[in-house]
Design a protein around this nucleic acid. Structure first.
Length: 596
RNA sequence: GGACCUGUGGAGCAGCCAGGAGUGCUCACCUCCCUGUCAAGGAGGAGGUCGCGGGUUCAAAUCCCGUCAGGUCCGCCA
C-alpha cells in the first residue's frame, strides 16, 4: 500500500523544506482557517500532522472553495510546496518552513459544526461530551497519541512474546459462569430458559487447560469482563496481557516479565528501567505502606508506634493498643507549615474514610529543647515524645500524623494518607518508574462477614510446597506461590504458580467451602483436565489498559481505550439499551414489571 | 449501596453564599469587510425550559426538599 494512499501523495505532517517545488496532493481535515479575503490559509490535519495550505487569486477557483470551507471539513488539495516567505516560517510547526500553494481544492466531505473545539489542546471539555462524539475527540492530539502508543505497546509485547516461543491462543468469549469473584455478565441464549453463557472475567481456566494440552507457552491479549462498579482504573470490559507457561517456576516468570517491561519502557516510553525488580513481602508492604500496591517513588513510610505508646496516657492510643490494634505514624517533612485549618481538613479527610479521627503534631523548638505541638501533647510524656521523634526521624518544622485503631484498618488509612499527603505536597516524582513485585502472599484470608475462608488471589493458586501440611489444620499459615506486579502504586496484575494436582485442588476447594459435588459441577472440566497429566505451570495476567495508561501519562484508563464506557453505559451508543419483547422471549426472558 | 463535587446558549466559565428583567466573559456559529496569517483582524447578528419536579417568596439560576445525569472516593472488584 502506498504510504499515504492513492488519493494523496504526501502526509500533511510529512512536508519539509526538502519538498520545495514538488507538486503534491494532500488530504485531511480542516483544523483552522484564516481567511483574509484576498488570501486564505487553511491548516490541514491528517494522521501525520498539520501543514498550512494557502489559496490566493492566482488560483481563483481554489480561493473561492477555500472561502466556503469550514472547520473539520474533509478536503483534498493539490499544489506546489513552497518555502514560506522570509520571516513567515512557523517554528512551532514541524512543517512550518513550507506551505502548499493550492491550485486545486476539492471538498470530499462537509462536516457539521464540531460539538467542541478540536484544535484546542486544553483538556477541559466534559468527558461525557467528548465520548459521545468520540470520533471527533480521537482527532485531538491527546487521544490520537494514546491510541498509537497503545498500538506500539501491543506490537512490542507480541514481538517479545513471540521471540520467547509463546503461542498466541484465543479462548472463548462465551463460557460458563463461575462462582466467586466479580459479578458475571450473562448472555442468555435461545438454548433454553434460564440458561446463560457468561463472558469471561479472565481466561484463567482455559489457559491452565492449554498447559495440560501441551501448549507449554501461551499468551493472549484478551478482553475480560466484570460487572462491577467503575473507577478511574476500571472498566466493565478491559484488556489483559495473559501469560501462562509450563515447567517454569517463579524466577522464570519474573525474568520474562522484567524483560518484557524493560523493552516496553525502553521502546515505548524511552526510559531504561533497572532489572531485576525489587521484591517486597506482602506483610512488609502492608506494614510499611498500608497497601498491597505501594508507590515506591517517595518516602513517608508508615511507622509503628506501638512500642512508644505501650504505657501511654493518651486515651485513644491506649484504647487502640489495649484492643490489640495499632498506633501508626506518618511523618511529613516540613509539615509544620500547615495551618490549623489544614490539619483539620486532614482530620475530616480521615473521617470521610470511616476513621474515628486523625491525630497530628508539629515538632517545634521550645525553651527546654524540642517539643511537640499537638492537641494530644499534654498527655504525652517527654520520653514518649523523644522516642517518637527518634523512630519517625521528625525534626523541627516537621509534622507527624497518627492513626489509631484496628491494625489492618489503620494501616490502610495511614497508607492512603501517605499517598494523599505526597500528592498534596508534590512529593511524587513523576519521572520515575518504580516496579516492585509483591510476594509471599497468604493463600487464604478470613471473611468475617461470610464466616468462611476466601482465596486472596484465586482458588487455583498453588500453596507453597512447605506449607502443604498446614492446609488441613491452619489455613491462615499457608503461603501462596503468588505475586503481584506493581508500578508507581498501581497494581498492574498478578499471577501464581498453579495447582497441578487434582487432590490439592480438591483440598483447597474444601477449605473454601466448595464441596466435591459443587466442585465437580462448577469446575469439573478443570479437575478432569488436571487428572489427564498436568505439567507444573504458572503465569500472570497484566492489565494492559493500566499499563498503557501509565506509559501514556494519563489519569484514567478511559484515556487509552478507543471507545470507553462511562458509569453504567456507553456514551456513544447508549448501550445497554432495552430490547424488544420478541427478542427477550426468544432467549427465555420476560421483562420484570417495573415499579414498586 | 453510601459520602462528596458538578450540572447556566454548541464548548469552557462567571453569576448562586447575600433572591430583584437570562446579566457577563472567552471560544465556536451566521452575514459582511479584509492579500501573509498561523489562537488572524474588524463590523454586525443569531442562539437559553439556568438538568428535571415540587416548595418558600410579591419575586428563584440564586433559598429549601426531592429526583435524574456525570465525576471522584468508600463499599465492591477471587
Amino acid at each position: 500500500m502506498k504510504p499515504f494512499g492513492s488519493l494523496r501523495t504526501h502526509g500533511a505532517g510529512s512536508l519539509r523544506a526538502a519538498h520545495a517545488d514538488e507538486t503534491v496532493t494532500v488530504a485531511g481535515w480542516v483544523a483552522r482557517r484564516r481567511d483574509h479575503g484576498g488570501v486564505a490559509f487553511l491548516d490541514l490535519r491528517d494522521a501525520s500532522g498539520v501543514c498550512q495550505v494557502v489559496a490566493d487569486p492566482t488560483a481563483s477557483e481554489a480561493l473561492a472553495a477555500a472561502h466556503d470551507v469550514r472547520g473539520e471539513w474533509v478536503i483534498r488539495v493539490s499544489g506546489r510546496v513552497r518555502l514560506r516567505p522570509e520571516g513567515m516560517a512557523n517554528p512551532s510547526l514541524a512543517t512550518g518552513d513550507v506551505e502548499v500553494a493550492a491550485s486545486e481544492l476539492e471538498v470530499l466531505s462537509p462536516a457539521d459544526t464540531p460539538p467542541f473545539p478540536v484544535a484546542d489542546e486544553r483538556d477541559d471539555v466534559d468527558e461525557a461530551v467528548r465520548l459521545r462524539h468520540r470520533y471527533v475527540d480521537l482527532r485531538r492530539q491527546g487521544p490520537a497519541r494514546a491510541l498509537r502508543l497503545r498500538a506500539r505497546a501491543t506490537s512490542t509485547i507480541r514481538r517479545v512474546m513471540d521471540a520467547h516461543g509463546f503461542v498466541d491462543v484465543e479462548t472463548p468469549m462465551l463460557t460458563r459462569s463461575t462462582p466467586e469473584g466479580a459479578r458475571d455478565f450473562l448472555v442468555p441464549t435461545r438454548t433454553g430458559p434460564g440458561v446463560c453463557y457468561a463472558l469471561p472475567q479472565s481466561p484463567q481456566l482455559f489457559k491452565q487447560l492449554l498447559m495440560v494440552g501441551g501448549v507449554e507457552r501461551y499468551y493472549q491479549i484478551v478482553r475480560c469482563f466484570r460487572d462491577e462498579a467503575q473507577r478511574a482504573d476500571r472498566q466493565p470490559e478491559f484488556t489483559q496481557l495473559d501469560i501462562e507457561a509450563a515447567f517454569i517456576d517463579e524466577e522464570d516468570l519474573y525474568a520474562l516479565v522484567e524483560e518484557l517491561m524493560g523493552v516496553l519502557m525502553s521502546e515505548v516510553v524511552g526510559v531504561e528501567v533497572a532489572t531485576p525488580f525489587p521484591r517486597l513481602a506482602y506483610d512488609d508492604a502492608m506494614a510499611r505502606f498500608g497497601t498491597d500496591s505501594p508507590d515506591m517513588r517517595f518516602g513517608l513510610e508508615l511507622v509503628d508506634c506501638g512500642a512508644v505508646f505501650a504505657d501511654t496516657a493518651v486515651g485513644v492510643f491506649a484504647g487502640a493498643l489495649n484492643a490489640g490494634g495499632s498506633v501508626i505514624a506518618v511523618m511529613l517533612p516540613g509539615g509544620g507549615q500547615l495551618t490549623r485549618k489544614q490539619f483539620d481538613e486532614w482530620v475530616d479527610w480521615a473521617k470521610g474514610r470511616r476513621a474515628r479521627g486523625l491525630a497530628w503534631g508539629v515538632v517545634e523548638s521550645g525553651e527546654g529543647g524540642v517539643t511537640l505541638r499537638s492537641p494530644l501533647s499534654k498527655h504525652m510524656s517527654d520520653d514518649e515524645i523523644a522516642a517518637l521523634l527518634r523512630i519517625t526521624g521528625a525534626e523541627v518544622g516537621d509534622a507527624v500524623f497518627f492513626g489509631a485503631g484496628p491494625t489492618e484498618f489503620t494501616r490502610e488509612l495511614m497508607g492512603a494518607l501517605r499517598v494523599a499527603l505526597a500528592r498534596a505536597h508534590d512529593l511524587v516524582p513523576s519521572d520515575q518508574w518504580r516496579f516492585v513485585w509483591i510476594v509471599d502472599w497468604p493463600l487464604f484470608e478470613w471473611d468475617a462477614e461470610e464466616g468462611r475462608w476466601e482465596s486472596l488471589h484465586h482458588p487455583f493458586t498453588a500453596p507453597r510446597e512447605a506449607d502443604l501440611d498446614k492446609l488441613s489444620g491452619e489455613p491462615e499459615a499457608v503461603r501462596a506461590r503468588g505475586y503481584d506486579l506493581v508500578l508507581n502504586g498501581t497494581e498492574l496484575g498478578g499471577g501464581s504458580m498453579r495447582i497441578h494436582h487434582p487432590q490439592v485442588q480438591q483440598q483447597v476447594f474444601e477449605i473454601l467451602g466448595i464441596g466435591p459435588e459443587e466442585a465437580e459441577e462448577k469446575f469439573g472440566f478443570l479437575l478432569r483436565g488436571l487428572r489427564h497429566g498436568a505439567p507444573p505451570h504458572g503465569g500472570i495476567a497484566l492489565g494492559l489498559d493500566r499499563l498503557v495508561m501509565l506509559m501514556a501519562g494519563e489519569a484514567s484508563i478511559r484515556d487509552v481505550i478507543a471507545f470507553p464506557k462511562l458509569s453504567g453505559s456507553d456514551p456513544l451508543t447508549d448501550a445497554p439499551a432495552p430490547v424488544g419483547g420478541e427478542q427477550l422471549r426468544e432467549v427465555g426472558l420476560r421483562p420484570l414489571s417495573m415499579g414498586t
